[in-house]
Simulated scan of single mutants.
Amino acid sequence: MIWLRIVLAILLLLQAASTGFPLMGFAAYRLGVIHPTAGPAVLMISLWSATPDWQLVVWLAAVLLLPVAALRLVLRRPALWFYVAGIGLNMGLTQLMHLSGAYRRVFGTAALRFNYDRLAVLVLVGLLIWWVEQRPVKAISPPASP
């Protein structure tokens, strides 16, 4: 059962990376590390500038909850609520960001379509975490004394 926990932990880390990658663009722009002057990144400047700091903090919290859940899975500790909190925060924040005018100017209305395939995978991962947590950990019996 530890292999399933490891596979789920890897999936959580991949989800955290996928969710956190756009956040790195926000942070790099806000910290002055990048100064886009050409290409697709120029379109993002209005969105990067219009997004309030509190949304970035909530986004970072949502991203960090996923590696915490992954670590707890591998350590055989309850991880489901960390996963649910991370995904819930991320999905709620994503929907809130989609309502902003800056988001619509950059991506138009085509990006507002909800991705049901991704939701199905997220629910499946949540169910697998729940199932793994329900399985009792086999106790290692102490060696027999001579």
Rank of each mutant, 00 (worst) to 15 (best):
G39W: 04
V106K: 04
L66M: 15
V74W: 02
I34R: 02
R72E: 03
P52G: 02
V121L: 13
A38Q: 14
L128E: 00
L64I: 11
I45Q: 11
V106I: 02
M97I: 14
F107N: 14
M97L: 15
P78M: 11
L89K: 01
V33P: 02
L128V: 04
Q55N: 04
L112H: 03
S46I: 10
A28K: 00
W130L: 14
D53M: 13
F107L: 03
R105G: 05
S46D: 15
G39K: 05
L65V: 08
I45Y: 08
W59D: 00
R72P: 08
M44T: 06
N90T: 13
F82P: 01
V125H: 03
G101V: 10
L75F: 09
Q95M: 15
V84C: 06
R77P: 10
A85G: 15
L93C: 09
A79N: 00
L73I: 10
G108E: 09
A28L: 09
A111I: 11
H98F: 14
T51Q: 04
R76A: 15
P36T: 13
G92Q: 07
L75Y: 01
G92A: 10
G25H: 09
L56D: 08
G108A: 07
L64D: 07
W81L: 14
F114H: 12
G32E: 07
L43M: 10
Y116Q: 09
F82C: 12
L56S: 07
L89A: 12
A69G: 03
V68G: 05
L64E: 04
L122I: 04
A50T: 03
V57F: 07
R105A: 15
R76F: 13
S100A: 01
L56W: 06
L124K: 01
V84R: 02
M97F: 06
H35Y: 03
Y29W: 11
G101M: 05
L93T: 09
L71T: 13
L112V: 12
W48I: 08
L75C: 08
N115G: 05
V57E: 05
S100G: 12
D53L: 15
L122N: 05
R105I: 10
Q55H: 09
D117G: 14
L99I: 00
V123T: 07
V125R: 00
F26R: 04
F82D: 11
A111Y: 14
A28R: 07
D53R: 09
I87Q: 01
W130E: 02
L31A: 14
T94R: 05
Q55L: 06
R76G: 06
L99W: 06
F107G: 03
Q55E: 07
V84T: 08
A70Y: 00
D117R: 09
A27E: 11
F107A: 13
T37S: 12
A85M: 12
L128S: 00
L112P: 07
D53P: 07
W48Y: 15
A62Q: 00
L75H: 00
A79Q: 02
L66E: 10
A38R: 12
I45A: 05
A79M: 01
A69M: 02
L99K: 11
D117A: 13
R104C: 03
V57L: 12
R118Y: 08
P36L: 08
A120G: 09
L122T: 02
V42D: 10
T109S: 10
R118L: 14
F82I: 02
H35I: 02
L65E: 01
G92L: 13
